[in-house]
Every structure is written in C-alpha cells, then in structure tokens.
Design a protein around this nucleic acid. Sequence first.
DNA 1: TATTAGATGATAATGATTATTATTTGAGAT
DNA 2: ATCTCAAATAATAATCATTATCATCTAATA
Lengths: 137, 137
Amino acid sequence: MEIKEIVNKLSEKGLRVTPQRIAILSAIIKLNNHPTAENIIEYIKKNHPNISVGTVYKVLDSLVENNLLKKVKSESGIMRYDPTQSNHHHLYCAQTDRIEDYEDEKLDELITGYFNQKGIRNFKIQNIQLQITGTFK
Amino acid sequence: MEIKEIVNKLSEKGLRVTPQRIAILSAIIKLNNHPTAENIIEYIKKNHPNISVGTVYKVLDSLVENNLLKKVKSESGIMRYDPTQSNHHHLYCAQTDRIEDYEDEKLDELITGYFNQKGIRNFKIQNIQLQITGTFK
DNA sequence: TATTAGATGATAATGATTATTATTTGAGAT
DNA sequence: ATCTCAAATAATAATCATTATCATCTAATA
C-alpha cells in the first residue's frame, strides 16, 4: 500500500502528515519522470482542486530538505523533482526536455574507485552525478 | 592580445563584432568563475554604463548558440556562464554557490572507455559531464 | 559613402518562485 | 473525545530572472 509508505516516510522525518503532502509525494511517484512544480500542481488539481501553488512549493522545499526528494536542474532553469532513491544519473535529451534516470552500479564502482585512489586536491567529495547528454533513439 | 582573439572568435562564427559582445566575452573571461548574467552586467557597467540588460541576455544566448559559451545550471536555477574550453566537469560546493572547473583527462578516458564498450540502450551519447558535489577545504 | 540586415537600448511583459498573513488543522496533552 | 497551539495551508501580492517588443542605431559589405 503506497499511501502507508508515504505516511511512514513523512512521520519518520517528523513532518506532519497532511493531505497536501501525501498528494504531492504520490503525484511525483505516479508522474514518474522528473515533473516540474507546474506538472505536479496540474496533476494534483484533479483530485485536490483547492491546493495552493505556494503550498506546493513550500512542501516541495521541505521534502527536499528532508531528503525525500531531490531537485534536478534542467536546461531551462525550471526546477524538476525526483523521488530520492539509490544514487543515479541522468540522461538529458539534447533536443527535447526529456530527462531519464540512469543507474549503473558498475560505473559507480569504477568512478568511486578512481577517486578513492586519486581524490581531488582541496575538495571533499560527497556525491558524484553524471549528466549524460545525447539523443534518444 | 586578448581582444584580438575575441574579435577573431566572433567573426569566425559569422557574428558581428560589436563593443557589447567584446565587453561581455572579456567580462566572462576576466571574471573567471561562472558568472551569472547579473554578475556580468555589474562588471560591464563600469566601463560601459549604457549597456542594456536585454542586450546582455541576447548576446549570452547567441554566444551559447555559437559554442563560445556554455550555460551552467546552478542549484538555485539562476543560469551561469562558462567560456567553452576543452570539456571539463564541475565541483559544486554543498554549502555555498561556489562552482569550480575540474579537468581530468584520465577520468575522461576511463569513462569514455567504459561507455564505448557498454553504451546505453536507446541512447546516443554526445557528452558526459560530472557534477561533483562536496566541500572545499 | 550609402545601404541594410542585424544589433542595441529602453521599456514592458512574462512566468517561476517567494513572501505575507489570516485562517485552518494535525497531533500530542488533558 | 476535546483542547491547545505550533505548524501548515490558501489566497494574494511581491520579487526577480529572463524574454518580448519595437524604435533607433551601426557593422559590414558594395
């Protein structure tokens, strides 16, 4: 039961469980490809016509702060949101605004191994994400 | 002579050589770390007080289109600009808005080698950029 | 030097995001 | 179950980066 899980995630983080938060989180999960705030609002309004735009932005911010979501930078500067999962990379279409997830454990090992040996002078690495640009066929 | 180079780059691309374009390109080169449009405007106004904001954005766009600049997505969604050079990656500070270039030929070879063998199903790779998040020490 | 497509400056418009504030509500205490 | 109140929400206005418009100007070529 998905809703249960969402409720759990929220209360684990000490966030109040509100219908808006549940709606927003499930919207992002349902919509599944890196929706913008606008996409989310549009989707939610079907079942939740009174939700306020400001609320959506505030909820998104607090979900990001609590690591339930990640912000994804898009080419145009409009922010998009992604449910946090195991670390993954992104495929950016060079021609459209399509963004897909890309997971590759072997690749991660390769890169992590490389930096474990080499490191970066004056920099402590927390996270590495690839932006792979190209075209879908 | 830097200005000469800039003039050359512009005319090579078939762009008219205007004082505004020269000023903007040299500002980005001088400023050196991924300035925003606002940073650029502020810097240019010293020597070029009448330049118009709209012009700066339009020039930036055309420089990006002609591969003389790259747009760098920043955490806040404000675009930043980077003179195009050999391909390079970015170090993002997790605490501030500092962004530094990171070049690493060995790493590029490693990654290119990996994808040459493996590829990505349904995707033609044009370019790979790493976003390395962490802290400067 | 004259011509003109393209560039610029001034200004207004847009659109995503943030701030404000009065009202409502979730969740722990009674 | 009800009370309490900090936190969340809805409605609205405000902000701020970016884009559009358009009259004027100018770089580049003849």
